[in-house]
Design a protein around this nucleic acid. Sequence first.
RNA 1: GGAGGGAUGGCCGAGCGGUCGAAGGCGACGGCUUGCUAAGCCGUAGCUGGGCCUCAAAAGCUCAGCCGCGGGUUCGAAUCCCGCUCCCUCCGCCA
Length: 421
Amino acid sequence: MLDIQKIREDPAGVAARLRRRDPTISLDRVLELDSQRRELIRAVESRRHELNRGSEEVAKLQREGKKEEAQGLIARLRELSGEIKALERELSEVEDRLRHELLSLPNIPHDSVPEAEEKIVLREWGTKPEFDFQPKNHVELGKTLGILDFERAAVITGARFPLYVGQGARLEFALLLWMFEFHVHEHGYIPVLPPILANRKSFEVSGQLPKFAEELYHCPADDLFLNPTAESLLANLHRDEILAEEDLPLRYVAYTPCFRREAGTWGEAQRGLIRMHQFNKVELFHYTTPERSYEDLEELVRHAEAILQRLGLHYRVTLLPADDLAHQSAKTIDLEVWLPAQGRYYEVSSCSNCEDFQARRGNIRFRPAEGGKPRFVHTLNGSGLATSRLFAAILEQNQRPDGTVVLPEVLAERLGIQVLR
RNA sequence: GGAGGGAUGGCCGAGCGGUCGAAGGCGACGGCUUGCUAAGCCGUAGCUGGGCCUCAAAAGCUCAGCCGCGGGUUCGAAUCCCGCUCCCUCCGCCA
């Protein structure tokens, strides 16, 4: 959520910066509702002042035994009270509408975010593996190795749900636990296993609601939503709290399954593990100060990259242009792993600085070390990493002509086998 | 799922229809007293949103709201009524 005071002070400037990501954005509605709101507040408050003084007068008259005068005053105040109620109803309606408009506005892109047609490639790591045979895709590899079973998953649930079997189940599990532990031990993250269902307010704070409800699985009986990314959950870990600056940055790592309806993406030719309704993800989340949040973003990206490097997978790092940014994000850097069978890179991590966008919605602040008023924290999130796609990359990049797969050392150690065959 | 109890300022805790700025205590901060420490004495303090002032901000002045949340009754609600959330105790069910 953007600061209404900033919008009020410099509407043209804010609008210009927002239009970098979406040229259709207009602040007219917000400004109109804001001025209506303030006008109503003035009307309510002046009447309420009069009412309060009147009520005091009633008490005084009654103490002095002036009954008729008190009755007369009460009759007048009754009318005033009714007027206030009507105005307050109007005010709360305007405030609801204003709130909804503000919640619908996306974050302002950071100045370092480009306007571009395509994402900008910042760097590549490693080299594309060369094959002297036609590399198979992970669906085929998974099937012949007996570790992925999409047919039976479809029987149980439907299309685009995963079913890992045998060494596949062990590999996925080992990968997740290894990443989780890696961030705890190597990078000092606080480990978290959060609830997988969360309430409406939580998704409002993170930014998924009210605008992107169609992406979420919803349990109407309890008005709870299935987790689409642990970002949403971790963004609510300190809702309504005032943190001590000395405790910042706070860095959390969580493992969760993620569920996304992926409405409207069915036309895309993405088979197998590329785009699923359910996938596993290890998520990194930072609570930090405005002064250092962009340094933290760089560090967050390095933490996520370390996973791919340790696994020996070729990938590239990209910077998203303004019009590709997620609603809540001011700047996003993606990690994309190479999938040889598809001949293209796929996102396995998206690292974003949301600045105070989520903090404002969740009322998450910190007390500055030098004292003074609490300020909003900055929040950052990044996958570290999303598997399903990572699983696919491990199979595809490490395959041999006979369809067997050589496991990266860290996983071979944990599984007690060198090769999937 | 059922029955009961509870939610008040940083913390404890009183208030149960009008003395306004929610008693009192603890803790915090500032000061005074004091060989040192402990103690004592005096004083200060919350959050949100308007308005005024200002080129602007801060400060200041002023108003309104905030006793879990949302409604209602009333001239007037922390206090009465209704709904909800969370916490605690017990019963039932359950991995």
